[in-house]
Each structure stands twice: as C-alpha cells, then as structure tokens.
C-alpha cells in the first residue's frame, strides 16, 4: 500500500474524511511556500498538493491565477517545484504534485516521475490529462512507484467514470461543481451524487474538491466523501496576509478549522 493509500485508510479507520490542502510552489517565495505547506500540515492537513505554476492555468480561478503568476514572475522552475515537494514530503505527509500536462512532458515524462519519486513525492494530479492521453504517464508513474489521481466531473458518463477510476491510484478526484478553482458560497448539491456514482465503479477513495473554503462546507463534504480538498481558501490566506509570518498563522488557523470539521462531518 502506498503512503497516500495508508493515510486515507487511517482516516477511514477513524471514521472521518481526510483533509487535503493545496498551495502553489513558489508563492510567496520558494522557501515561503515550503513554510506554508508545513504550517498547513502542522494545522492538521493530512495530504498536500503542491501546485506547479503554469503560464496557462485554464482550470484555475482568479485567486490561484494570481499566486501562480507571481511565482512565475519571480522565475520559478520545475526544479524549484521539486525542491518544494522535498520540503513538504520531509514532514512525512503524502505530497502530490498538481500540474498541467505540458510542463511534465517538456521536462521529460520519465525524468519527471523519477525526480518526483526521488524528492519523496507520492504522485500527481493532472487536471488536463484524461486517461486516453495518459499511457506514457501511467507507465512512468508505475515505473517509479507514484500514485496517479485522475478527475471525474458531474458531466462524466458512467462509462467515463469507469474508464477513469480504472486508472486511478491513491484516490479519485471528484470535481464538486462545474467551473474553475475558487471559493464558493455553498457546496454544490450534486457533489454527493457524483461521489455515489463514482463509488459504483471503484473501491479507491473518492475525494471532493473545488469550491470548499470553510469548516461548515468541509464538514458537509466530509459526511459523504473520503477526503476534502481545499485550495483557493488557503491561497487567499497567503494573498491577503500583510506579511509572510501572518500568512503562515492564517494558513495554520484555516487548517485547524478544517481538520476539526472533517472530524465532525460524520457525527
């Protein structure tokens, strides 16, 4: 069992959802992002996603776009991202890379998988890579013992959910709503339905992301999902902080709030 699977199984054994937090590498700086990821883990996040900043983030809303653009403007590269992964993974928390596909293909598919594994990374989430395009990545991930998370959406047919869950290792990412990353006022009602439809096809844990931003929403999602994924709300804490130290405090506080919520969700 991979470390990621173990952590998800442990949460399940405690009858709670796992908490998964996203932050982009390189924001507010390379070292600052390592510190923020660590603050998140100290606050109670079980699994982290390190975003690889990309010039054309089609699936991201304004909050993540802003942080990612700042990281790119400061000159972040894939090599720096791997250093951030190393810094986060050293805590023992399973550390995934969230990336659009082209930076990985350009780095070299197998070379990236090897480097990610060497940095202690647990696997990847690749939002613009569908299973039909993923043969090379699946081979590389397998060769280097990495988990591979693919996404299902509300518009996915049963056939596509079957196809996607078939190649998922670690967990399945269920996109809770139709849209891009960002915080929303309410959790979409159909997320629960998507999780149920996904479970018809797989034993792999199903984690829900997109739009979850506070404890109330996290508890709501934790009631029916194996994991709750929070991104933009963490990034916003960093963006709105007057300085790096208070950003870390705010990130840790949000992680604590969410960690409590995922433990309350099923009661």
């Amino acid at each position: 069992m991979s470390k990621l699977a173990e952590v998800l199984a442990a949460a399940k054994a405690e009858d709670r959802a796992a908490l998964i937090g996203y932050l982009p590498a390189g924001y507010p700086s390379v070292d600052g992002s390592i510190a923020a990821l660590r603050a998140m883990i100290e606050g109670g996040v079980d699994i982290v996603e390190v975003g690889l900043p990309y010039s054309d983030p089609q699936m991201d809303g304004p909050v993540i776009q802003k942080a990612v653009q700042a990281a790119l403007d400061a000159g972040i590269t894939t090599l720096d991202v791997l250093r951030v992964v190393e810094g986060a993974a050293a805590t023992g928390a399973p550390t995934l890379v969230m990336s659009y596909w082209n930076p990985i293909e350009r780095f070299g598919t197998d070379r990236f998988a090897a480097a990610l594994a060497a940095a202690g990374g647990a696997g990847t989430i690749l939002p613009d890579l569908i299973p039909e395009e993923a043969d090379d990545w699946i081979a590389a991930a397998d060769a280097h013992g990495l988990d591979r998370v693919f996404l299902v959406a509300q518009t996915s047919t049963g056939e596509r959910i079957a196809l996607t869950t078939e190649v998922c290792r670690g967990f399945v990412y269920a996109a809770s709503l139709m849209g891009v990353t960002g915080t929303r006022d309410a959790v979409s009602g159909s997320a629960k339905d998507l999780v149920a439809r996904t479970r018809e096809h797989t034993e792999v844990p199903v984690c829900v992301g997109l739009g979850v931003s506070n404890g109330v929403q996290a508890a709501e999602v934790a009631a029916f999902a194996d994991g709750v994924i929070v991104g933009s709300a963490f990034v916003r804490r960093l963006i709105e902080a007057p300085d790096e130290a208070s950003g870390l405090v705010a990130v840790r506080a949000l992680a604590e709030e969410l960690a409590e919520a995922v433990r309350k969700g099923r009661r």
Binding site: W101, D128, L129, I130, E132, L151, V152, S156, A175
Partner: peptide, 9 residues
C-alpha cells in the same frame, strides 16, 4: 484532447 474531464461530455 488535453482538456479537463468536465469538458469531455
């Protein structure tokens, strides 16, 4: 077709 799953349908 390197696009998010949400657009596949």
């Amino acid at each position: 077709r390197f696009m998010p799953e949400a657009l596949m349908a």
